[in-house]
Design a protein around this nucleic acid. Sequence first.
DNA 1: TTTTATCGTGTTACAATATAACACATCGAT
DNA 2: ATCGATGTGTTATATTGTAACACGATAAAA
Lengths: 167, 167
Amino acid sequence: MPSNLDAQSIAPHPDHDHQACIDSALTAARELCREKQQKLTKTREKVLQLIWGSHRPIGAYSLMDALAEGEQKRVAPPTVYRALDFLLELGLIHRINSLNAYIGCQDPSHEHHCYFLICTSCNLAVETDPGPFQSAVGQLKQESGFEIRQQNMEFNGLCPHCQEQSE
Amino acid sequence: MPSNLDAQSIAPHPDHDHQACIDSALTAARELCREKQQKLTKTREKVLQLIWGSHRPIGAYSLMDALAEGEQKRVAPPTVYRALDFLLELGLIHRINSLNAYIGCQDPSHEHHCYFLICTSCNLAVETDPGPFQSAVGQLKQESGFEIRQQNMEFNGLCPHCQEQSE
DNA sequence: TTTTATCGTGTTACAATATAACACATCGAT
DNA sequence: ATCGATGTGTTATATTGTAACACGATAAAA
Ligand SMILES: [Zn+2]
Ligand SMILES: [Zn+2]
Ligand SMILES: [Zn+2]
Ligand SMILES: [Zn+2]
């Protein structure tokens, strides 16, 4: 996990240089598409860029609204959902099921499970390392007999910044 | 966690006595409502019973269909959603976000986080103990600075029975 | 006993999220 | 030139969930 994060915490600081986040995400996306021989078309890139517009999950219809900004005509839902499906497939974004919303992946260079901390106050979502959970997952596989293929974890609570606000 | 489960696994065996599951769930629900001084009305009880009709998550509109069986008129969505909200609030059921569906809680006697194993083949969903994950969660709280209030974990894969089928 | 407050339900309409189906366009390979 | 594969446009529709307001039962208060 990179990069542009607060030293005290894995959460991005409100004042961080977010353009750097966007730039590095797009660079990583181009790289990944080259590797996997997939095309990052204009629509797909624009959607990815809009998703990286913040560290908060954004819904498909909000993305449609954002895409419409400064354009003559709105795109229809399938256009956005196709782009989302493509980006999900490549691991460039994750879906936050509890919010029906999408957020950029912090490290698309390798496939991984979907672990997020989500602030219920400001909607900040921070991707986190599944590593520390894997021994418990292994134990669970043993006990349950399930063959676990996908892990999806959503923690809700208050981010450091919102805790300060509410004190 | 009780009860009517396969000895080899926490997953319910396909041949288990499921009426016992339903009965004990309803008994537990009546008990909990008495404790918390809440009313388990006819609609609420019927919805809970239908949810316990299987160990698979069921959607709100499927519940409406099931409620309509043998009745003159269908109930409208708000009726089902109100019952679901009530049952969720009391912890008698959980919502599986990835499926927009609802499933009975194995142990509503005390509040707890939502941890499920879900079979992608037969949709069986098995609630599991958050305990083994809590040290990793504690570490994550430290590192992230988040105040974590809710945990929602969904593991997808193949249940023991479906693994046999596919061999 | 009437009054009033609370709670649960009925009903209508609608919002928000997502997909099916089919037409068309682009582009590289044969 | 033709074909096949892929990406997009367009229309309609499916699925999931809520807002708003009216009605009815129950039970405490007057
Ligand atoms: Zn950033
Ligand atoms: Zn926050
Ligand atoms: Zn059972
Ligand atoms: Zn199965």
